[in-house]
């Protein structure tokens, strides 16, 4: 959508350097006349209940069956790629610094803040294994898993795709992501493994053989699953 003076974020225009803008009424600008919602970064948003996620999954399931998981991952991947471009632009605008020169932890926290305002849940990044080429991301209150409840398998393919797409663009290296523990498997939070394709394929294989998140972590740290 084209940004006009009606839907551009007024508070942001007035205070372009305000960093603490993630409260609902600051982050979103509601335009009741047009029925539009613009966020702090001038991106349009729509609000939905959990019914939207269910609708998406059911509609896909009906048409493509089990391939719906892979499609949701692809959608996430595309999302992450689009988002990385937008993020780079607003990060540079807000902090006057290229994202590539910023402290990594700060950069990632900054990236996730809008998702918190948008209701996608909190996250926690564990980078202790990054030198070995993989890292873990925990998501609390995943919108997908919370919606579906306990179904006995990982369901947050959209998040996995989002992480893979975003990090692939930011790191400029082909990365994949897999959810190795999910609220929908009766766990309290969701855990994602991010890394090169070979490792993620290995983790997927171990999972199919019944490995849990802890087994996978152990095997990766022992150097299994490739370089």
């Amino acid at each position: 959508m084209i940004m006009t003076t009606e839907n551009a974020h007024r508070l942001h225009k007035k205070f372009p350097k305000k960093h603490n803008h993630y409260a609902l009424r600051d982050f979103f600008q509601f335009n009741g006349d047009y029925g539009t919602i613009t966020d702090w970064n001038d991106t349009r948003n729509v609000l939905t209940s959990e019914d939207f996620i269910i609708g998406l999954l059911e509609g896909l399931q009906e048409e493509v069956g089990d391939a719906s998981a892979a499609i949701m991952y692809t959608v996430g991947l595309e999302w992450g790629k689009h988002d990385s471009l937008i993020f780079e632009a607003w990060f540079e605008r807000e902090f006057g610094m290229s994202p590539r020169r910023a402290n990594l932890m700060f950069l990632l926290e900054t990236w996730w803040w809008p998702f918190i305002s948008q209701g996608w849940g909190r996250w926690e990044v564990d980078m202790s294994d990054r030198k070995q080429g993989f890292m873990f991301i925990n998501v609390f209150d995943s919108a997908v898993a919370r919606t579906l409840g306990d179904v006995g398998k990982p369901v947050c393919h959209l998040y996995a795709g989002l992480f893979a797409g975003f990090f692939t663009e930011m790191v400029r290296k082909q990365l994949s992501c897999i959810e190795i523990q999910c609220y929908s498997m009766g766990e309290t939070y969701c855990k994602f493994l991010l890394g090169g394709r070979e490792r993620i394929d290995a983790a997927s294989f171990w999972m199919n053989e019944g490995a849990n998140a802890r087994d996978i972590e152990k095997r990766l740290r022992a150097g299994e699953g490739g370089e």
């Binding site: 966020d39 948003n45 937008i86 919370r146």
Partner: peptide, 13 residues
Amino acid sequence: DRLLAIPNPLLQA
């Protein structure tokens, strides 16, 4: 009841 904000990049995706 839970709400989600779906940003434009996700719709495009």
